[in-house]
Nucleic acid binder design. Structure first.
Lengths: 198, 198, 198, 198
DNA sequence: TATGAATGAGGATTCATTCAT
DNA sequence: CATGAATGAATCCTCATTCAT
C-alpha cells in the first residue's frame, strides 16, 4: 500500500547505497562499519538490513553497477565516434577518463575493494571487468590490423592503458590545476603514444 | 640475556614483519588481525607486542621500508646508467618494474593500504613517495630540456608512468606467459613512447 | 469488512497457528523467529501481529489448546470403555499414545518448550497438565482400590507412565517398523505391567 | 610459564563449563546468551572465547561429557553386579536413576537441548547415546534368552525404560517427599515389571 | 624473550515489536 | 485485512591491546 511509503523506502535505499559507496571509498570495505554507513544514510543500523542482504552483497551490488556504468559510458562514446581507429581510441579513453574523474568513489572501489568480494561475487565482477578490457583490446587490435597503430604489444598496451586511466582517482584533485576535460584529453594523447599511432 | 636469545629475537622480529607483509597484502590492513599475523609468524599473539608498538605502527614501518627500498633500487640502477636521457629513463623504469614484480606484497601495500595510515605516519610516507616521483620527474624534465623527449606534459607523463608500473602487481602472474624481464622491457618501451623519445 | 475478508482472516489465523506449531517444534521457541513463522504461514511479518499479541502469547495459546485436546481425547476414549479398571487404563493409554503419535509437534512443544512460557501462562498450562495427570492417577488408584492393580506406588507409576508415553515423540518414526496402533498397544501393555494388573 | 596462571586458567575454564551447564539447563540453548554464561562464570564475555571455540562447540562438549559420564556410571554399577539378569538390570537402572537425579542439568541438556547441535556434533552425540541404549538392550535380551524375563518386546521396553528414567529430571524435586535412593529403587522395580521378570 | 589470561569496544546480523498507511 | 518501513536491544563473535609472570 501507500505510494508515499514506497517512495520513502526507495529514498532510504538510495541513501544507503550512496552512503555505502562513499564510506567504502573513504575507509575501505573492512574499515567502514554498517553502523557508520547507516549513520551517514540517516537511518538506523537495523533498517539497513531491510534493504541489503549483507555487507558482502552490498559491496557486490555497488561493484556490479559500477562496472556496468563504466562499460555503458565507453560504449556510448564509441557510438558517436567515426571509423578511424585513432579517433575511436581517443573517444573511448576520453570517455572513460571522464567517467573515472566524475565517479571517484566508484573507481576507488573498483580499484581497491573489489578483492574483498566473496568468491561467487568476485567471479561475476571479474567477468564484467573483462568485458571492458576486451573492448579496449579490440579497439587496439583493430587499429593494428588496419595499420593505424604500430605497437608490437597490443595486449600489454591495452592493459596498461586501462590501469593508468582508472588510477587517475589516485591523484586527481577536482580543485587542482588540471580540469577533468584536460586530463581526459592528455590521457587520450598518452593512449595514442602507447599504441604508436601513425 | 644471552646471545642466542638476541638472535632468536631477531628471527622473530623478521618473521613478524614478513607475516604482516603477506597478511596485509592478502586481506588488507583491516582484514588482517594481529592474531592472524602472529599465527603466520609462528609466535604468540602477545609476543608480537614485544616487537611492534601497534598495528598502525607496524603498517607504517612496512611502508617506510618499502618506499625506501624502491627508491634505492632505482637509484642504484641509475648509477650504472650512462648519460643519455632515454637510456637513463629506460634503466629506471626497468629497475622499478622488476622491483614491483619481485616484491608484490610490498607494492600491494604501497598501492592500496597506505591510506589506512594514521595522519602522522601518512605524511611521512607521502614524503618518501614524493621523492621517488620527483626522481622520475627530473629524469623526464632533463630529457625534455636536452631535446631527447618531446612530450609537452612531462609531469603528467611522469605520474602516469609510475602509476602504470606500480600497478603491474594488479595483473602480473609469475607463472604467466611473460617473464619479469620481458614485462620490464616492454614497460620501458611504453615509457619512451609516453615521453615521445626521439 | 466483507464476509470474504473475514474468511480470509480465519484462514490466515489458522495458517499462522500451524506454522508456529511446526516452527516451534522444529527449532524451539527461541530458535524460531516470528519472521520465520510468518514466512511459513505465507503472510507478512507485521500481519502476524494482527492475530497474535506476542510471541509468548502465541506459545501459550498453542500449549493451552494442545493440553485441552489431549485431555479431551483421553476422556472420550474412557467414555466408550467399560467398567473394568484394566480395560479403562488400556483405553486411556492407547488413546493418549495415538494422540501423541498423531500430533507430534504438539507434544514436542508440551514436552520441551513449555518451560519458556512466562510466569502467568506457565501456571495456567501447568494446571491443565495436572488435570490430565490426575485423570490417570484416579484410573490407577481406582484399580488398586478395587484390587485389580497391585502396585504399591500408584502415584509414581502414574507419573512414569505419562512421561513414557509423551516421550514417544522422541523416537517414533512414522515410516518405521512399528505402526502407531502397534506402538499404542504395546504401551498399554507396559502400563498394565507397571500397575501390576491381575 | 607461571603455574599459577595456568591454574587460574583451568579454574576459569571450569567455571565457564559449569555456568554453561546450568544456564543451558535453565533457559535452553538459545535462551542462554554467552554474555549471561560469562556473567555467571564471573568472567568477561570475550574471555569465554579463550576457552570455547563457539557456542555450538560448548554445547557439544557438555553433551559429549555428559553422555560419557552416564555410560561410565552404569558400566561401573554393572561391574559390581553379579550374574543374575534381574540383579544386573536392577543395578543398572538404579545407577542410572541416581545419576540422573544427581546431575539434573546434564540430563535436561541431554533430553531437550541436544537437538540444537549442529549436524557433525549431533551425529557424534547420537552415537554415544546409542551405546548406552545398546547396553540396556543387551541386558534385557540376555535376560530374555536366559528365561529370566518374559517380555515379548525387549527392544521397546528398553527404549521406554531409558526414556522414563532420563525424564525423572522433569519432575523430581530434591526437597520432595521421595529421596533419590527411593526413587531409584522404585524405578528399578518398574524396570523389572516392564521386562516381566520371573 | 615469551606466553596465557584477560578485557572493553566494536564487528555484522537478527530479534520482537510498532506504526503509518 | 494487510503491509513495508522503521527501530533499539540483543545476538554471537573478533578486535587490538594490556598485564602478570
Amino acid at each position: 500500500m501507500t505510494d508515499t511509503q514506497v517512495q520513502r523506502g526507495r529514498a532510504t535505499e538510495q541513501a544507503i547505497r550512496e552512503a555505502a559507496l562513499s564510506c567504502f571509498s573513504e575507509r575501505g570495505y573492512h574499515g567502514a562499519s554498517i553502523r557508520f554507513i547507516a549513520d551517514r544514510a540517516g537511518t538506523s543500523l537495523s533498517n539497513v538490513y531491510n534493504y541489503v542482504a549483507s555487507k558482502d552483497e552490498l559491496l557486490a551490488q555497488l561493484l556490479r553497477r559500477a562496472s556496468e556504468a563504466q562499460y555503458a559510458q565507453v560504449l556510448e562514446a564509441l557510438d558517436g565516434a567515426g571509423e578511424d581507429p585513432a579517433e575511436r581510441l581517443r573517444a573511448a579513453v576520453e570517455a572513460y577518463a571522464r567517467y573515472v574523474i566524475e565517479h571517484r568513489d566508484e573507481l576507488v572501489l573498483s580499484n581497491t575493494e573489489f578483492r574483498y568480494l566473496s568468491r561467487p561475487h568476485r567471479t561475476e565482477v571479474v567477468e564484467l571487468r573483462d568485458r571492458m578490457q576486451r573492448l579496449v583490446d579490440d579497439l587496439i587490435e583493430d587499429g593494428v590490423r588496419r595499420g593505424a597503430f604500430a605497437t608490437p604489444y597490443p595486449a600489454d598496451v591495452s592493459r596498461s592503458l586501462l590501469t593508468m586511466v582508472s588510477n587517475i582517482t589516485a591523484w586527481f584533485q577536482p580543485e587542482g590545476a588540471l580540469s577533468a576535460t584536460e586530463v581526459a584529453r592528455r590521457h587520450a594523447g598518452f593512449a595514442l603514444a602507447l599504441v604508436e599511432a601513425g
